[in-house]
Design a protein around this nucleic acid. Sequence first.
DNA 1: GATTATTTACTCGGATACAGTGTGTCCGAGTGCGTTAGG
DNA 2: CCTAACGCACTCGGACACACTGTATCCGAGTAAATAATC
Lengths: 157, 157
Amino acid sequence: MKMSGGVEWGLHCCVVLSAADEPVVAAKLADLHDVSPTYLAKQLQLLSRAGLVRAAPGQSGGYLLTRPATEITVLDVVEAIDGSQPAFRCTEVRRRGPMAIPPERCDTPCPIAQVMDSADRAWRESLRAVTIGALAATVTATTPRELLDSARAWLSA
Amino acid sequence: MKMSGGVEWGLHCCVVLSAADEPVVAAKLADLHDVSPTYLAKQLQLLSRAGLVRAAPGQSGGYLLTRPATEITVLDVVEAIDGSQPAFRCTEVRRRGPMAIPPERCDTPCPIAQVMDSADRAWRESLRAVTIGALAATVTATTPRELLDSARAWLSA
DNA sequence: GATTATTTACTCGGATACAGTGTGTCCGAGTGCGTTAGG
DNA sequence: CCTAACGCACTCGGACACACTGTATCCGAGTAAATAATC
């Protein structure tokens, strides 16, 4: 099981965007993180479709958050990029093969699927509890002031 | 994000094995669940490597659990088949690009990785809380007696 | 009749092809800004 | 001097190849049981 590597990029981009008041161009975000510009563009488009960021077209355009960073959860970003479907999908093995349980007697969901769904909910709940704003706060608290300032300056340049 | 479909098969197989006192042949498990025999063999080999099941070779051989079903957690099976690595892998984007944080100042782990790891732990904890024995108990409790008996009979045939 | 070497059929195990999704890339449509011509 | 139309450069958006992991498969090595010959 492996989640799309674009999730990490998307989260970093959202944190950066939360600190910028002006639209930031996709290419600049790619340069900052030293990743493929075209592929990161794809991820940003996914964020745009999900309504988390807004694309300002035209000259001096770029991306900016649509909501305050404290109202965007990590789960939002993960689901926008990696999809919202659970990792485990029950194929109802019970109803197949020679010992198949007849569908009319299958009133209760498969116990295995129940366990998996429960774990999946716990995972999502854990991600929903943290917002981009909280992430940004941690970053600003743990990073030396000078680095933050120089980064912001480089971003505006 | 998608987990290997073999996980579902492996769990079903473990539940079946917990109800059988004699070794069960891989081909019979495949027939029972109506899945690819050769591919399910691969999953059983993974379970064998992980030490969850034991392969009895030779005539009248087959697979059987190495421990009581109540001492095998769902997480054990998931990790045996799907691997134990977390879904999210931090690539340390902070240390790349023009605004890279120098490694010597990177004493605290990346906040994003922290959140992801926390969610991953919650997920694993949820799966660790349920054993194959508990699953089997639920199955026996929710499935009509006659179906269980016929299934056991078919398995021994 | 008991013992033992042999044959046999069956099991699992690892090495080998195919497919689907994720990864990475490209070019075209659309939009705001700067310029310039006109009033 | 102000206004408005124009062109342009820049932006994002969706359509297009490539790669890697997961899926599915096959054949060979090993083992326990059944068999038959021997003592």
